[in-house]
């Protein structure tokens, strides 16, 4: 369908243990800074935000013994770059099994980069209702923002060049569990 981009792996940014430890820490921070979890709901952005949201919810259950509801958001219909792609994007269902109105929503994604995905996710979220607050948690913040968007909870901030790509690989979606820094080769 399209030429596969050639990339070389540069370094490992996080091991499986580090990912786990970081998510535990994020869960603690979220509980601490949310002023109660009663109204909280996590929404994972497809694709890798989904297993991360589920893991954070599990970790929060371990800390507070609360069941925080978890939803899934597919942002394809809200992307601002559809006119720049030629192939047919594959749509997925958003599964949000709770009313969004007046919820304290925490969006979860693997990498925060330009901020355009977060923008799309907020548009999608507001089509479902009016949350009382929206915050965002990411495993990696790699900089290069193109929009005035910041995450409330960040696993790790790293310096990258725009030729580089941060690949979060999780055992739910990939063959392995680690975060890699790879570089595009022309």
């Amino acid at each position: 369908m399209f030429a596969r981009m050639r990339v070389v792996e540069k370094t490992q940014l996080m091991s499986a243990t580090e990912i786990d430890r970081t998510l535990q820490r994020l869960a603690h921070e979220i509980v601490e800074k949310s002023g109660g979890t009663a109204n909280l709901a996590l929404i994972g952005i497809r694709r890798r935000g989904v297993p991360l949201a589920q893991r954070i919810a599990r970790a929060m259950h371990g800390i507070e013994h609360v069941e925080v509801p978890v939803g899934t958001l597919d942002i394809t219909l809200y992307r601002d770059d559809l006119s720049k792609i030629a192939s047919h994007p594959v749509l997925h269902s958003s599964e949000i099994p709770f009313p969004v109105d007046d919820k304290d929503v925490l969006l979860v994604d693997d990498v925060l980069y330009t901020g355009r995905t977060a923008r799309a996710a907020m548009n999608g979220l507001f089509d479902l209702g009016r949350p009382s607050r929206v915050r965002m948690a990411v495993l990696i913040d790699r900089g290069h923002r193109e929009l005035p968007i910041e995450a409330s909870f960040v696993g790790r901030s790293i310096q990258t060049s725009s030729r580089e790509i941060v690949e979060v690989r999780l055992h739910e979606t990939d063959q392995e569990e680690r975060v890699m820094l790879v570089e595009r080769v022309e």
Partner: peptide, 25 residues
């Protein structure tokens, strides 16, 4: 809706080298 989306949402000429699976984050 699906049909209109598939047929006219995307551009015909330019292709994103990273493919449709990669959103911009």
């Amino acid at each position: 809706m699906a049909l209109l989306f598939v047929m006219i949402a995307t551009g015909a000429e330019i292709d994103d080298a990273r493919g449709p699976a990669h959103a911009a984050h």
